[in-house]
Write a protein that binds this DNA or RNA. Structure first.
Lengths: 243, 243
DNA sequence: TCAAAAGTGTTGACTTTACACCCATGA
DNA sequence: TCATGGGTGTAAAGTCAACACTTTTGA
């Protein structure tokens, strides 16, 4: 950012600039988190009932204003921690939504993140306002522009899922290949061929064979795997592919 | 965004909420544009000398604070228009940078966009502050966190270039396959095989054969093409690929 | 006639898809 | 013994990478 346009290269100090810009500190910024979990072969998102009259009976994502002394990313981690009690979580920034009238309280620009977590690790912190896990395929209308935000984040997730080992954040540490495949199918909303899926996973070399078996399944138990330790990471970064 | 945490589902009006949030309107938001052009087989970015003492002699991207009554995207189009006089330009949001101390004047969160334009169409509007086109491969240090922003945008551009018909925004309307290939090579920083490149373009079916030839080249002239009209677009949106 | 780039196909390696059978386990 | 999913291989189609020669034009 550089507001130098039209002034004739007079150097200003940052402090002087600050004063001349007070007018602009009239926009609030928030973060909104698409917190995703996976349960009963369904992808679910953590929602809360909006407490604004304008949106009564609609659900919204979890978000909050960013504090002036808080990094943007830190704000999203704070939301997660406050709501789920979890701290070491996969989180990725997706897009910033900034139309003028997206928030009825005033000018609020929001940066959307998605988070992936193991739903069984979560004890929801405060259980009022209908905080709950909601199947993502079962959402028509939301408060604010949150439906758009949700869709944008799901789109991004789908783009990444085959290239980057991210979805493992949705599973318990140990899982079978069937569970993993079902998760992919839930995310991509499609069916996958079992043999081809297993081949693909073998090629990616993401998994570590635990030499353990499923227990308490009503059929032949499958092998258990975990994500290779080197691939675990808290936030996603992408690599450029060679063309 | 929903600040309902911990309150016992008392509905508030947006107006009431606005008042209680005044404290938070202490963050400014800006947009920064990585404005890219292509000239002499080089990718270039439009830079200006920073007018902050803290960054004297460093260049910065073109950006500005977002006005309270201006959409975020509109702000980036405004920057472009002010600096280049161009209006109908490819522009894409990339990432929002929000660490506390990234701007010495105070808390400024910035959303980065990249723009692609035909450098020959541009008459730079105000030519002070060393506004100029700078080869992207020749930049080490920039004001603020602008080097990171630039790198992030270039990374995103490289990711998109083979999947989406975006780079055509950098070329004149009519171009030869050689020119197009040289552009791809400049963006990707690599050499491409001519035959394979032409095959790939043929498969993508992005180009319309104009039945015209290059003129004034000191060798056998090549055919001229233009991007198919249906594929022209001002801002980029991605599609999910089927897996 | 020379220099420069245009234009063009094939082969081998690899990747992706489609598809079916026997096996191990728990009920 | 039955139901359920585990586990596995192959062939055909398609994609990708490497590679060289002839043609056209302007100088």
């Amino acid at each position: 950012m550089d507001r130098s346009m039209g002034n004739k290269s007079l150097l200003k100090t940052a402090e002087a600039e600050k004063i001349s810009h007070l007018d602009y500190f009239k926009i609030a910024i928030s973060v909104d988190c698409v917190i995703l979990g996976y349960e009963q072969q369904e992808l679910k998102v953590l929602l809360i009932k909006s407490d604004l009259k304008e949106f009564s009976n609609l659900y919204s994502l979890l978000g909050d204003l960013v504090n002036p002394d808080e990094d943007l990313d830190a704000a999203s981690y704070r939301i997660l921690r406050e709501r789920t009690g979890l701290d070491d979580i996969f989180l990725q920034q997706v897009h910033t939504f900034g139309t003028i009238n997206r928030h009825p309280s005033g000018r609020v620009i929001t940066t959307a993140y998605f988070a992936l977590l193991d739903i069984n690790n979560v004890k929801l912190k405060i259980n009022n306002n209908h905080l709950h896990w909601h199947p993502v395929n079962d959402i028509k209308k939301m408060a604010f522009d949150h439906k758009t935000i949700l869709d944008t984040c799901l789109h991004r997730l789908r783009e990444q899922v085959m290239e980057h080992p991210v979805v493992f954040n949705l599973l318990p540490e140990k899982f079978s290949l069937r569970e993993l495949q079902e998760l992919y199918e839930a995310i991509l909303n499609t069916e996958l061929d079992r043999r081809n899926f297993r081949k693909k996973m073998a090629i990616k070399d993401w998994l570590h064979d635990l030499d353990e078996m499923e227990v308490d399944v009503p059929h032949r138990p499958g092998k258990l795997y975990k994500l290779k330790t080197v691939l675990r990471k808290k936030s996603g970064q992408k690599k450029v592919e060679k063309v």
